[in-house]
Amino acid sequence: MKLDNIYQEEKKSNLAKVSEIIITMASRPSGFIGLSILIFHVILAFISPYIAPYDFKAINPTLMLQAPSAEYWFGTDDLGRDVFTRTILGGRTALTITFFGSLIALLWGGLLGIFCGLVGGKTDDIVMRIVDAFLSIPWILAMLLIVSLLGTSTEVLIPALGFFYGKGIVRVARAATHDVIAKDFIVSARARGHSNFSIIWNEIIPNVRDAILVEGAMRWSWMLLGFSSLSFLGFGVSPPTPDWGLMISNARGLMSFAYWSVIAPIVGLSSLIIGINLTADAFAKALGIDRSTKAPV
């Protein structure tokens, strides 16, 4: 009775489900690499203030643009600050702001998308046209406007990024809802007279949750790139706080003779984005959203 255990599998606790998903993700090489990079960055963000060898804002004119050495592993920048210290600290703000930003994006985008998909009709039409209109505005322009009006504090950046990156999630959530909305179990719930809230909570969310989570994970990496672009343009994190976008922006003019001060933040930023992307991919596959890896029969 080989297959019997499949048919007698008990209802699992949520923790067991999550750990099973993570194990499945890590069992693929790409998922393993992605997860390792992401976990490395997250741990680094937590411990970097305690392990940083130097003060990140200590300016030392005598140490300007030193090449990497045993003392200064990644060299120093144009103000004589240690690049290694600044690089390991440089992901903290970006990671925090974009993490909470994507949570907000996920929440409002997901819920609005599900609601539009369920209600349909005129409400859906109107909301979706507004979303489309926002999609047509270049986000960076709008962000610059918001930031220059309201400042670059975290309280402004998180909701602003969350809003702009949630628009795309609305569409995904709505499409995922459309997939299940025609199914008979929704019709059945309607015919029994369940409220819209109960239908969304009990019937739709369990079925669209995976798709929205994967989309949210992808948005996170895009938001990270977006946030770094803002910093690069001088509208994100304000100096002297170390930030990769800002560091790249500062050191880009010196690239020809002091490449080290640019390369370190670039590697930091791109490895984090690659890590998130690979993790999101593996996450989707572990949830069975990727159809190509579906088991036969």
């Binding site: 179990f185 019709v187 015919a191 029994r192």
Partner: peptide, 15 residues
Amino acid sequence: QLIFQNPDESLNPNH
């Protein structure tokens, strides 16, 4: 009450 043609569609797969 209704009973549908295809039980694959009329039962929520996540319940």
